[in-house]
């Protein structure tokens, strides 16, 4: 990889990650009802994206590297998506008497 990021960028990303951790803890103290988990997951996903793009250098890498990184997430979506498909449709067929 030929690209070298500036120290300032690394410090900015590091600061953002720390700030997001603080936000995660702070939000956990507020009851958002059904949004509790989605909000926590959204913040985690944002932090993971920053790490992958900047600390792992994917943003500045070849298209092949980007495809490799993206395929990991595609497979995660397959795992979570189809598994959730099972949970969401289990109750669609009732049982006799129910």
């Amino acid at each position: 990889m030929s690209h070298i990021s500036s120290k300032g960028l690394y410090y900015t990303i590091f600061g953002t990650l720390i700030a997001m951790t603080v936000v995660t803890v702070a939000i956990a103290r507020i009851d958002l009802g059904a949004l509790n988990t989605p909000v926590a997951l959204a913040i985690a996903a944002f932090k993971a994206t920053l790490v992958i793009l900047f600390f792992m250098g994917v943003k500045y890498n070849t298209p092949l590297t980007k495809v490799v990184a993206a395929s990991g997430f595609l497979w995660l979506i397959i795992l979570f998506g189809i598994t959730m498909g099972d949970y969401l449709t289990r109750a669609w067929i009732g049982f006799p008497g129910r």
């Binding site: 498909g85 099972d86 949970y87 449709t89 669609w92």
Partner: peptide, 14 residues
Amino acid sequence: WGHHMFVSSQSIYA
């Protein structure tokens, strides 16, 4: 993978 789980209580639609 779910074809290992037809009788596991997995949803019939899955």
